[in-house]
Write a protein that binds this DNA or RNA. Structure first.
Length: 601
RNA sequence: GCCACCGUAGCUCAAUGGUAGAGCAAUCGCUUCGUAAGCGAUAGGUUAUGGGUUCGAUUCCCAUCGGUGGCUCCA
């Protein structure tokens, strides 16, 4: 643990992966006539590397096998990696058949754009790395020779489409993903980890645990919540509403439909129309299904005159929204088209901003403690100057001001965050909570957004203490995300083993033989009367089978009742950990379960 | 939306250019059992949908729908 921390970019693993990418590019190029394969970029990434190609035909899985085989041959020959620094002119002359390389060189020449088209601090030197017959424009670093790549610790994973420079208006290239490690055992461990992650995937567990389903005739991205999912939703809403009540929120309800004019006023239409279901025409008026609740809440704020004495006004709603996410963007419960948001809008004065904003951050932390969520990053998402007037409201002064307000609030509160430009909402900066799905995709779970723009468009005002009209700031917040994403996340977070308070079925009673059924039903009635979610497994199967099924459904308590229990008025609990407790009276069990629920354990 | 791959019973999977089979689940019997699968029987499929090639298609081709891995985009 006292080992010096080597930055990934400086590590041997990074060099290995970077070198493997070059070796792969050589192997791919050799599949085609000279100059036919256009090579783009091929960097190391978190778990491996990729390389992007523009090829005369699409690559097949068989190609991948052949490429991998050829890579091992190249590795075996221990070709040294040799670096050469050249001028831009020389560099361009080296790549007559490689338009992507020419574009990269011109970027470097013109004042420093890196391979992703992002500006560099200084004009970099232009260098090549050559091994065997393959030369690539490259900053390095590499291993000394190809033999330093362990041929048993590399694997090509998949072919995917990827746009040149990440822009969907550009050519789509073929990207080959590979993974590379120092030792074969590390590759094996990585592949095993991927398998384990798949078992935790909410799409698999959600089906196994009967939480939700999709139906082709309902439509993609439109989940149907099964009874078990219904329970989880109900528990989440009760928690949210209780905490919001304690935190000074008022619950409101708003329609799912609204006239077009509302979204014209809010300014959402130009920014958001692509993600909205198309309008419907009724008696000459266009209506939209709402993709967000904010404009409705603004209308509730302005439904009566407001005084500074009323502020902050906190309006909360589990609002149902529909967004037309493009088909390829859907992902289980994490990215859907129908969703219920743990939404609220806080209207406050500038003086109240910091306290209100940080109260939301405190809410995040409170929920994270309840759910025992530790792996997340808070991200301050700010604007980008070149997006002003396009992606972002065109008022740089207010962007800079509100971003600084958020920084100040977070710093004063001592809450760590990372700052990432060009991730803001169109109306202001925000603190997003970033989490990762089982298979490693990053998602925004919770969000806390400043809005310095839309209240004005809605003519929202309150009378300040001088009797003048003043426009409030608006904070948009969703600490519990949407039901869909939150539950998708929680399924994976708990691996399906939900804590007792939110577990869809909290206990299954396992009668050993039919003669214990009546006693089992009696116990169940008592537990149900105490508000617990309990089933009796009355099937004619042996208890072993009942235990197995309950175990697979990750039910917290399996309550075995046989002759002894029926005689003594007890139950014999087994936990899903496999632990067996001493026989308890029903009252003692109730006490134990109540305490566990109380503690959100 | 784009690129690639995939689609067989509720679930997990098998098989084949000559109209499909297993295990689990379900149903019905038998069994009444002490902590992860008792035994048997029955039922369940226009092989996602629609075209095409063929004497014949579930298998080959095309389109559509849906899913998966990425890209783009996002709570």
């Amino acid at each position: 643990s006292d080992q010096p921390v080597v930055k990934y970019e400086d590590s041997q693993l990074y060099r290995i992966r970077h070198s493997a990418a070059h070796v792969m590019a050589q192997a791919v190029s050799e599949l085609f006539e000279p100059g036919e394969a256009k090579i783009a970029i091929g960097p190391p990434i978190d778990q491996g590397f990729y390389y992007d190609f523009d090829l005369p035909r699409t690559l097949t899985p068989e190609d991948l096998k052949a490429i991998e085989k050829r890579m091992r041959q190249i590795i075996a020959q221990k070709f040294p990696f040799e670096k050469k620094v050249v001028s831009a002119e020389e560099a361009k002359a080296m790549f007559p058949d490689q338009p992507y390389k020419i574009e990269l060189i011109e970027g470097l020449e013109a004042g420093g754009l890196d391979e992703y088209g992002q500006p560099l601090d200084e004009t970099p030197e232009i260098s090549f790395y050559t091994h065997d017959s393959f030369t690539d424009l490259c900053r390095g670093p590499h291993v000394e020779h190809t033999g330093k790549i362990n041929p048993s610790a590399i694997k090509l994973m998949s072919v995917a489409g990827a746009y040149w420079r990440g822009d969907e208006n550009n050519t789509q290239l073929q990207r080959i993903y590979g993974t590379a490690w120092e030792k074969p055992a590390e590759l094996k461990a990585y592949l095993r980890m991927l398998e384990e992650a798949k078992k935790r995937d909410h799409r698999k567990l959600g089906k196994e645990l009967d939480i939700y389903t999709f139906d082709e005739e309902v439509g993609p991205g439109l989940p149907l919540w099964l009874p078990n999912g219904g329970v989880i939703i109900e528990e989440l809403e009760q928690l949210a509403k209780k905490i919001e009540r304690e935190s000074g929120y008022q619950q409101v309800r708003t329609p799912h439909l609204t006239k077009e004019v509302l979204f014209q006023r809010s300014g959402h239409l130009p920014y958001y129309a692509e993600s909205m279901y198309p309008p419907m025409d009724m008696e000459g008026t266009r209506y939209y299904i709402k993709p967000m609740n904010c404009p409705m809440h603004h209308k509730i704020f302005s439904a009566r005159p407001r005084s500074y004495r009323d502020l902050p006004v906190r309006l909360a709603e589990y609002g149902t929204c529909y967004r037309y996410e493009k088909s390829g963007e859907l992902f289980g419960l994490m990215r859907v088209r129908s969703m219920q948001m743990n939404d609220a809008h806080i209207y406050c004065s500038e003086a109240q901003f910091e306290e209100e904003f940080m109260a939301v951050i405190d809410l995040y932390l409170k929920y994270f403690k309840i759910f025992n969520i530790e792996k997340y990053v808070m991200r301050l998402s700010t604007h980008a100057k070149d997006g002003l007037g396009k992606k972002y409201v065109d008022n740089e002064r207010l962007w800079l001001k509100t971003e600084e307000m958020v920084r100040q609030a977070m710093d004063n509160g001592g809450v760590p965050y990372v700052e990432v430009p060009d991730e803001a909402a169109f109306y202001g900066p925000k603190i997003d909570v970033q989490v990762w799905s089982a298979i490693g995709k990053e998602f925004t779970l919770a969000t806390n957004q400043v809005d310095f723009s839309v209240p004005e468009k809605f003519d929202l005002v309150f009378k300040n203490s001088q009797g003048e009209d003043e426009t409030p700031l608006c904070i948009h917040r969703a600490p519990l995300s949407t039901h869909e994403r939150m539950i998708g996340f929680l399924i994976e977070h708990y691996g399906g083993a939900f804590p007792l308070w939110i577990a869809p079925v909290q206990a299954v009673i396992v009668p050993i033989a039919d003669r214990h059924l009546a006693y089992a039903e009696g116990v169940a009635e008592k537990l149900k009367a105490a508000g617990l979610r309990v089933n009796v497994d009355a099937r004619g199967d042996r208890m072993n089978a009942k235990i197995r099924d309950a175990q697979k459904m990750k039910i917290p308590y399996m309550l075995v009742v046989g002759d002894q229990e029926a005689e003594n008025g007890t139950i014999a609990p087994r936990l899903r950990s496999g632990e067996r407790l001493d026989a308890l009276s029903v009252d003692a069990l109730l006490e134990r379960m109540a305490a566990e629920i109380e503690n959100y354990a």
